[in-house]
Amino acid sequence: MGLSPVDSYPMPDRTALPRSYVSWRIIPVRAALLVHDMQNHFVGAFPKGRSPVVELLDNIAALRELAGALGMPVVFSAEPPGQRPAQRGLVADVWGPGIGDEPDAAAIVAPLTPRPGEHLLANVRHNAFLRSHLGRLLRSAGRDQLIICGVYAHLGVLLTAADAFMNDIQPFVVADAVADFSAEEHSLALRWAARSGVVCTTDGLLRELLRHREPRNRTPGAGPTAAPHRDSADNT
């Protein structure tokens, strides 16, 4: 099947959000931020300079800035390029061979390039937990809340949120910091995410995080000479 161009559609606002079944509140010392599959290959399917990609990039950037300021782990998931058929598995039957070896296709989009001290995980399935070290990373950092943004809402974002819930990690899906193939699929993803997590807006989440803001020391390894942490996926 592969990727088709995405038509422009408006980002949902707070009046269009489904009611979450839970009333969890975000706590920075318990939370991490996951930026899912924001790679040139995927983001390039959206119309440049139009909704929803304009808001998508701006809102993720805002979340990433505040998460870093609060000392929250910031994690990027990215599909590796040039996967062998055995690595790609059944996903190839639906989405084809995946990201090829074209220059920069697999790179995180320039406005969100991972920084020193942030984590970059290879993920070989839509669910960012599967065959990656995301769960181990969260446990080692003592985090049981996960803010999820990126693409695509009804695939990787929703499946990752569901797996977080199944593993007693509270998922927070940011409605206007995810995007999808269409407004309909975007809305569907939010309705399902609301059944096992919190669906919120960027502004609302930023306000909630700022309530807890206090000066923090930088985490070890986050200095200007450190490189993003890269965790290898188990691709067998």
Rank of each mutant, 00 (worst) to 15 (best):
L155T: 04
Y9P: 05
G98Q: 10
R143E: 11
D163M: 08
G49P: 14
F76E: 04
S132D: 00
R30Q: 10
A106V: 03
H229D: 00
A32F: 06
V173Q: 05
V22D: 15
R115K: 11
L188K: 03
D231F: 14
S132V: 02
W192F: 10
Q39R: 13
V151K: 01
L137N: 13
V91E: 08
L3P: 11
G96C: 04
I27A: 10
H36I: 00
G68K: 11
G197I: 02
I169T: 14
S77P: 00
S23I: 00
D176M: 01
L121A: 06
A179H: 01
G150N: 04
T236E: 09
R125K: 10
R213E: 13
G71E: 08
H41Y: 13
R19Q: 12
R230Y: 11
A45N: 13
G82K: 07
A179F: 01
A45H: 09
I169F: 02
I108S: 08
F181W: 07
G44D: 03
F129H: 14
T225G: 00
N235F: 04
C200L: 00
C149M: 07
F129L: 14
D176K: 01
T201I: 03
I108N: 05
P228W: 11
L63H: 13
H126Q: 09
L90H: 15
A67K: 15
N127R: 05
R211D: 13
L130F: 12
C200P: 00
A128T: 11
I27L: 05
L134F: 13
G89L: 00
S182G: 10
R218W: 03
S23Y: 03
D144M: 04
P220Q: 15
G82E: 01
V53S: 09
N235G: 01
V35Y: 08
L210Y: 05
L63N: 14
D231N: 09
G71S: 07
V74G: 04
F172T: 06
V109P: 01
T236A: 06
A193F: 06
G197A: 06
L56M: 03
R50I: 00
M38D: 09
N127I: 02
G204A: 09
V75N: 00
P224L: 10
A233W: 07
Q145G: 13
N167S: 02
S77H: 09
L34K: 07
N217C: 05
D7P: 01
R216E: 12
L66G: 11
D231W: 15
R136A: 13
A233N: 07
A175E: 10
E65K: 14
G44I: 02
H41I: 04
Y152D: 07
R230T: 11
L146F: 09
D176S: 02
D168W: 04
D144F: 00
T160G: 01
Y21P: 06
R230G: 08
P111F: 00
R19H: 12
D37E: 06
T219P: 05
S232R: 15
A45P: 10
W95V: 13
V54N: 11
P220R: 15
L137R: 12
S232C: 12
V29R: 14
P85F: 03
I60C: 02
G71R: 02
N127F: 02
A177S: 05
G204C: 02
L112D: 03
R139I: 00
L138H: 14
P52W: 01
R139P: 01
P111V: 04
L63C: 12
I60H: 07
Y152T: 12
L146D: 09
P73R: 07
V157A: 05
V109F: 02
A45Q: 14
I26P: 00
